[in-house]
Design a protein around this nucleic acid. Structure first.
Lengths: 204, 204
DNA sequence: GTCTATATGGCGATAGAC
DNA sequence: GTCTATCGCCATATAGAC
């Protein structure tokens, strides 16, 4: 089937938009910047995607859907809870490794416009996420894991997984100033391991 | 000594600016919003602080200096390491409570323009910070604490302290969607406690 | 010092030639 | 489909009255 619109240009725009929106957020991003990155004219952005918001929507929906995919592991009730948590750690660290700015992106957009996000989550149709807290509470009731504050555990876990990727430039700079080298001292495997140790220590 | 400029109004502005900048960031914040919050006219902002950026700088420098103040505890070698860590946790959580977007801002600034930040750090004149890793390594050598990967411990610690404040809107939204209430389930004290448990588990 | 009114500039969006 | 030129809005910033 012949496309009505040239895919190559459209995808160039989407790629550029992803890059710029990820870096600056919806309001911080500039259409001119996106156009420059895609090496096309600013007017073309409006030709392909009516408005800045519609362009943003396209980028955001794709990202959100991938994000939720990783979280689906919690819905798999045939696996023991700790196993699910470990799989989640592996998945989410790999995910952030590929999309380091994703949590920054999510945070910023939710902060700016919660209603907008709710809509988009409905679109992604995968809001079985964050079963995490629910799953933990069930596991504690049945005695499968140690009793802890489930919400606080979730917060700590998200912190440990997300922040290193958000803050990479800061850590890199800070370590360098003290004679250390981020690229040598940090690895995904080390991070996974340390978070799994945290889980073991917390949930027994 | 008589002030040339009315302190009360200036401080009202700074207080309002802090609130708005921390909520929306440099670019998201609106001068009108700051003026409304301070219950003064928009033009007065420019009378007291030439421009939006200069106003932002004032807020930021104040924050930065407080931030380094908290980190000074690591330099106090008369205290046991774990005691220093616990004091740091208390201080830094209280700090983030006042400046929730501080780490977000630091990350962005360092990412975009390391030189600018170095300048500001020089201004704050307290870059004895991040002794943390060094102190840990000394403590491990002397046997005061358990042997761990000091860099990774630092990363985990910073993650646990910083992320909850950066991501508050996301957590609030996410919990609400599952029948929970962030404002009830989260407290600074709970966070402090859970991080101290993490330290105990990690360093023995 | 504080206000109203206005200038200035940047950005999203559109019109229209090719 | 792609470009240049331009419109209209809104936010920062300034002028000037009081």
């Amino acid at each position: 089937m012949k496309q009505l619109i040239d895919i190559s240009t459209e995808e160039k725009i989407l790629e550029a938009a992803k890059e710029v929106f990820m870096k600056y957020g919806l309001y911080g991003a500039r259409m001119q910047d996106i156009a420059d990155t895609a090496k096309i004219n600013k007017a073309l952005l409006h030709y392909y995607f009516r408005s800045k918001e519609k362009l943003f929507d396209k980028v955001f929906e794709g990202a959100l859907s991938k994000y939720f995919e990783v979280m689906d592991v919690f819905a798999n009730s045939t696996l023991p809870i700790k196993k699910r948590l470990f799989l989640y750690i592996d998945g989410i660290i790999d995910f952030y490794s590929e999309y380091p700015q994703m949590s920054m992106f999510l945070i910023k957009e939710i902060g700016n416009n919660p209603e907008l996000l709710k809509q988009k989550i409905q679109i992604a149709k995968k809001n079985k996420t964050h079963r995490l807290v629910q799953v933990l509470e069930e596991g504690m009731k049945s005695g499968e894991i140690k009793k802890v504050d489930a919400t606080m555990f979730m917060i700590n876990l998200q912190s440990l997984c997300s922040f290193p990727f958000i803050a990479t430039p800061m850590f890199r700079h800070s370590l360098k100033a003290h004679g250390k080298d981020w690229d040598k001292d940090f690895s995904n495997d080390k991070l996974k391991k340390s978070i799994k140790t945290f889980i073991e220590n917390s949930l027994g």
